[in-house]
Design a binder for these strands. Sequence first.
DNA 1: CTTCATAATGAATAAATATTCGATTTTTCT
DNA 2: AGAAAAATCGAATATTTATTCATTATGAAG
Lengths: 153, 153
Amino acid sequence: MKNKTDRIKFIRQVCLENNVSSQEELLSILKDNGFNLTQATLSRDLKRLKISKTLTPQGLYRYVVPLSTFPVSHTPEVRKMGVGSLEFSGHLAVIKTKSGYAGGIASEIDSSANSAILGTVAGDDTIIIVPREGFSREEITKALTKILEESEH
Amino acid sequence: MKNKTDRIKFIRQVCLENNVSSQEELLSILKDNGFNLTQATLSRDLKRLKISKTLTPQGLYRYVVPLSTFPVSHTPEVRKMGVGSLEFSGHLAVIKTKSGYAGGIASEIDSSANSAILGTVAGDDTIIIVPREGFSREEITKALTKILEESEH
DNA sequence: CTTCATAATGAATAAATATTCGATTTTTCT
DNA sequence: AGAAAAATCGAATATTTATTCATTATGAAG
């Protein structure tokens, strides 16, 4: 049996390329391709992927992948803190948090004085992070992940 | 009992303005507002409206009105809300508002969970909006206009 | 005013989907 | 390595949503 990561990728691909109208249908496609799982797991996978059953203009049901899925740094610790997602736009990084958490988490980031982070501003559930010049997205991601994990302890 | 057309309009409005996460919940809102119907009829109404239960970036369920059926009207109401101007700088959008309004309007934008908008932060009369990569200024403008119109009524 | 067709609806039910629970595996921490 | 924490997953179940079936309302044509 193949692993979860492959399965998740495959599910996304199938939903992008086919008109899938129920989990049962998707399940049988998965089984045909060597993935062995139950409807319960599929339901959970779809939830992770934020894929949901929507209505087409023709009034038919279809499972659709949302326009933008969120590349997320998702260690359990980070999630515990209320961090929902980390995504880049231009040279800025944006963290979405649980409502009301942005200020607190931003101040954790500020106080870490990490050399990759120039500064942050926070709204209610959004933190905008301004990286220092010369740092890659990967470096920023690592730095933020580390800060958030450390602040847990 | 009110008629079908009114009911359909009302359902659409409720779904635009509230976080409705199940038909039962919506049903009780409808009953509170004098609409008497059963879940069966509601299910059919939602299908007519192409409103479906989707997952928010936070992983919660919400009934959402699809973009394509949003009404397209223009600026007068938007002004009422205290929005002064929308202008771009680099890949960021900035909205200037009446003094004190920025936080409230920003939270409308955040709660819309529009796929074109990554997040916002607000001061007193200024909202900085970070668009998702891959969206044009025109798309961002349209998205924001829609969000603000919807929140008006 | 009937008659026929169509739409609207609720009750009951079917179908589809989400979650709980317990068992197992994997990961993390020391 | 070994303990503790967390993730994964299936079976069963709960919950939610769609549809069927029967009934009543609505409306058009004779």
